[in-house]
Amino acid sequence: PEPSRTNMITAIRRTLEHELRVNPRLLIFGEDVGPKGGVHTATMGLQEAFGEARVFDTSLSEEGIVGRAVGMALAGLMPVAEIQFRKYADPATEQLNNCGTIRWRTANRFAAPIVVRMPGGFAKVGDPWHSVTDEVRFVHAIGWQVAFPSNAEDAVGLLRAAMRSHNPTIFFEHRLLLDHPSARRPYPGDDYVLPFGRARLVRSGEALTVVTWGAMVDRCERAAKAAGVDAEILDLRTLRPWDRDAVLASVRKTKRCLVVHEDALTAGFGAEIAATLVREAFFDLDAPIERLAVPDIPIPYNLGLLAATVPGVDQIAEKMHDLVTF
């Protein structure tokens, strides 16, 4: 790793640049990814370096972006498609769903290993389009891998793994984390790859297991310090596959579990984790499994309402205290 820290957006750009250099089959495209370099600057300078044939703009059609990527992948290319914001992916739902089942539908004779980069989540402001995550929809999509890194180092390793995988991948880039100090890490090098399905032990503890991912990782760390709780924090990093073994081992040790995520509470991925724990570790528990997530409302514009909607440090700390004193 390099000595200085870099932000997540720069780490993503450097990873894309290296893979473009070493893999002649790799292409990057989407709305404004060419001369403009993307609305978040993830592809800034890449068209100039590699040409319009490999880094280029598309029309305003998410269905067309994903459909084009699938066709290119079937022809042997490695497409990396950018959807500007998570909510914009909804018009491409049919193409995304069909992509995930290609290997199954063709008895593994064909595959479409595309990577769909997708920024989303709250940032300095909120709204019902740019600020949603709704990652569980893609966990439901059969055949897809889902990555949701919380820091620059993990983003490098997971993005590189996705671009070298035989399976299609949804790669979430949380808007707040793109330049947030908590997500900055030394660039881990051009050969760094992280396998999917392995959680990161953020912090060891004995009193409580906290399972989280994305922008909630930093908030959970700060909440544990604020509450004075000896919490063990696991960053899942990927949701499909997810590290069941790490979560089960931690909960069997601490006897308590809190799941914190930014997706909606009802049927969010935290419900799957809770159901797994109830089935596999019920007799190890000393307290109910708790979930803290966004209530079933749109992400608001108003900053005060946004702060009340997305789980904050104080809310998480209070929930931690309630669990350890149950």
Rank of each mutant, 00 (worst) to 15 (best):
A107T: 11
T41E: 11
D90Q: 12
A281N: 04
A267W: 15
V210K: 07
A89I: 13
V55E: 00
P168Q: 00
Q84W: 04
V139N: 04
A287K: 00
T41W: 08
E17L: 12
L303F: 09
V294H: 10
T41H: 12
A293Q: 10
F269E: 07
P79R: 06
L46E: 05
F122N: 13
V39T: 07
A89Q: 08
K225R: 15
H174P: 02
A246S: 15
A141T: 13
W213Q: 11
P91A: 07
T309L: 02
H261K: 01
V146W: 11
G45M: 10
D263E: 04
V132C: 09
S4T: 12
G30T: 04
V247H: 04
T266F: 14
G205F: 11
R200C: 12
L258H: 00
A287P: 05
T106N: 12
E153N: 08
R256P: 03
E19R: 03
D284W: 15
N7I: 10
G38W: 13
G100M: 02
C257L: 03
I142D: 08
I299D: 02
A249W: 00
L285A: 09
V259P: 01
G228S: 09
G197Y: 12
N7F: 12
L16I: 10
A112F: 09
R200A: 15
T43P: 06
D191V: 14
A207F: 12
A307C: 05
H261M: 02
R200Y: 08
L277M: 02
T325D: 06
R203E: 05
H130D: 12
E280H: 06
H40R: 09
G189C: 10
K253L: 14
R222C: 04
H261Q: 00
T209A: 07
E221A: 07
D322N: 14
T209Y: 06
E94D: 15
N108G: 00
V39R: 02
P113Y: 08
F85I: 04
D134R: 10
L26D: 01
R54G: 07
K36C: 09
A69E: 05
Q47I: 03
G37I: 09
A274Y: 02
L236D: 08
R86A: 14
G121T: 07
S182I: 04
V115E: 04
N23G: 01
D263H: 01
G312A: 10
T238M: 13
K319I: 11
L96N: 06
M78R: 14
A293T: 07
M216F: 13
S131G: 00
A215V: 14
V229L: 03
R160E: 00
W144I: 03
R5F: 06
A264W: 14
A162C: 02
R117S: 06
G189L: 01
A275V: 10
S165L: 09
I316T: 02
R160H: 00
H18C: 01
R291L: 03
